[in-house]
Design a protein around this nucleic acid. Structure first.
Length: 558
RNA sequence: UGUCCCAUAGUGUAACUGGCAACACGUCUGAUUUUGGUUCAGAAGAGUCUAGGUUCGAGCCCUAGUGGGACAACCA
């Protein structure tokens, strides 16, 4: 509703200019091209929001295309998770999902065309020989002895590569560009390699598979993608991307690069994430500590919060490291609006109200979400025996502590004010075992006529009706701001040993009915959601994120 | 001893060539609050990597330097 005039990022500027010039007849078609060799992470979310968001904004569409040209690392498990994650983020792609492998036949024809033009050749050199002849970024390469085979011979050999006559690595098809080019990618790049591997979609049909450079751009072109947006590391591939399009005389998709997302205290490399999974450092790709979409989902992040995050971080071409606190801000912002407030005591200590009749119960009304008048209210059971949070009581309250201590008073949320008159120590441990309080009958919530002064309101749960709950407290997975930024140290050295703490709490009875897609605010503690492992017999909740805590901060300063 | 990309508050992202460089997060005040949450009000924090140049005028243009990044996988 409130139309803020937002400035355009550089890609939107390009798009608007193209639209103004009526390039492609005003048509906008982007694509999101994951390789199905891992799970999507928050960095991919940035790209998804960019590609789908751009199309939405300018009346275009977005293809979901799997870049599945390397059968040895790819798998349907990944395809399925990617489809689910993109959908969950709230996007619908143009028609059915497509696959680079759908174009293998067409790509093969393109290769033949290049061979016929004398722009591609079959090379018998080994991988090592090719690497040696490539030169280095500072020295030109040298031409392969096979570079000048006849068109007929190339056609024949390439055909036989396809039929499986040669073994893996015996021959490759290369583009004939320029072995002295300063850009290494122009030094006769490989177009096809022999790989006798079963492909997750084409099975054993192919013995040769195209390389990224000869698949991605051509797929864009086949689909008539107008703006092919990728990350900065592909920038050096752009001249080749354009060379193939030009020589093949096919639809001129335009490649535009932007800087990938880096998050502090997080790793984003698929290879390293895979290592965390395979090394069992986490419970799986969807472990709530993982920066994967599935991990964030299980952690309790909402699609909205991730989209808002992606919008906020912006799009540019310079390397960046986003502070995780911005991601956390984005979830809190959304969850604050939608999460139902409930009371859960995470580290229980018993409170007995000595002047409240034993055995008596009272139902008290509690608003579900003060931020949402549609959310209604529910009833809480109150009695003379409650659990309160151990941290809400101090035997000798320190300066600035507004909660409970001997002689001090607090309000019990939605109930009465109480004053602490006594406490009982556990002889064995020396820890406080029980707190005795007096309640003020005339201080009931909403009809308070007492003049008792309290500085704080604390949460509580009735002992008899409370339900047990396993609570998984997640913290950042790494202790270092840039776990993979140390050349001399492995990122695993920075794993946070306390990234997961499992505790047993006491929850109000209403939580028995929670379902997996619910989000809650445990009053004063944070945002939580039921884990998929949770059941009515055994409640298991994950902490999405804590609440901002001014008290923690103040304590840290003292 | 190469080519290309990048350089604005702590972190990100803005700024039609010319009102004291804006916004968000973070930080710090204060108010409100039956969540030490939310909300609200306010503050501090950069003079735009450096040096030249063009211009009446440059964060925006040019040159050089400096710093950071990318590029030599039969990965994408």
């Amino acid at each position: 509703m409130s139309e803020e005039k937002k400035t355009l990022n550089f890609i939107e500027q390009i798009v608007e200019k193209d639209l103004l010039e009526n390039k492609h007849g005003g048509r906008i078609l982007t694509r999101f091209p994951p390789e199905p060799n891992g799970y999507l992470h928050i960095g991919h979310a940035k790209s998804i929001v960019l590609n789908f968001g751009l199309a939405q904004k300018y009346g275009g569409k977005t293809n979901l295309r799997f870049d599945d040209t390397n059968p040895t690392t790819e798998d349907v498990e990944y395809v399925d998770s990617i489809l689910e994650d993109v959908r969950w983020l709230g996007y619908s792609w143009n028609g059915d999902a497509v696959y680079a492998s759908d174009y293998f036949e067409q790509l093969y024809e393109f290769a033949l065309a290049l061979i016929k033009k004398g722009l591609a050749y079959v090379d018998d050199s080994s991988a090592e020989e090719i690497a040696a002849m490539k030169g280095t970024p500072t020295e030109p390469g040298i031409e392969s002895p096979f570079r000048n085979r006849s068109v007929e011979e190339n056609l024949d050999l390439f055909e036989r590569m396809r039929t499986g006559e040669f073994g893996d690595g015996q021959k490759v098809l290369r583009a004939k560009v320029d072995m002295a080019a300063p850009n290494m990618h122009l030094r006769d790049p490989l177009m096809y390699r022999i790989k006798k591997a079963r492909h997750h979609r084409t099975g054993d049909k192919w013995n040769i598979y195209p390389m990224y450079d000869f698949a991605h751009g051509q797929s864009d072109s086949i689909e008539q993608i107008t703006h092919s947006i990728c990350t900065l590391e592909f920038e050096v591939h752009r001249p080749l991307y354009e060379w193939f399009i030009q020589k093949l005389e096919i639809f001129p998709s335009r490649q535009i690069e932007f800087a990938r997302l880096n998050l502090s205290y997080t790793i984003m490399s698929k290879r390293r994430l895979l290592k965390l999974v395979e090394g069992k450092y986490v419970s799986g790709w969807d472990d709530p500590r993982m920066p994967t979409i599935s991990g964030l989902r299980r952690r309790g992040y909402t699609p909205e919060s991730i989209r808002n995050f992606a919008d906020r971080i912006g799009i540019a071409r310079r390397e960046n490291v986003i502070d995780v606190s911005l991601l956390e801000f984005s979830v809190r912002e959304h969850l604050n609006k939608i999460a139902k407030r409930v009371m859960v005591v995470m580290d229980p200590i018993k409170m007995v109200i000595t002047n409240y009749p034993a055995g008596q119960n009272e139902l008290l009304d509690s608003v579900n979400n003060p931020e949402d008048d549609q959310s209604g209210s529910r009833q809480l059971i109150f009695s003379n025996t409650l659990y309160i949070e151990r941290d809400d009581f101090m035997v000798e309250p320190q300066k600035g502590f507004y909660r409970l201590g001997p002689g001090l008073s607090v309000r019990l949320k939605d109930a009465y004010k109480v004053t602490c008159e006594n406490f009982v120590l556990d002889e064995a441990t020396g820890k406080v075992k029980e707190i005795h309080c007096l309640y003020h009958p005339d201080s009931k919530s909403g009809q308070d006529t007492s003049s008792v002064n309290v500085k704080a309101t604390i949460h509580w749960v009735d002992v008899n009706s409370a339900v047990n709950m396993e609570i998984r407290l997640y913290d950042r997975l790494f202790l270092d701001e840039a776990p993979d930024g140390h050349k001399d140290k492995d990122f695993l050295e920075f794993l946070n040993p306390d990234s997961l703490k499992v505790i047993q709490g006491k929850a109000e009875a209403s939580l028995k009915d929670a379902t997996t897609h619910d989000h809650f605010q445990f009053m004063r503690m944070g945002y939580f959601c039921p884990d998929p492992d949770s059941s009515t017999e055994k409640l298991i909740f994950n902490r999405t994120v804590t609440l901002k805590d001014a008290w923690q901060k103040q304590k840290g300063k003292n």
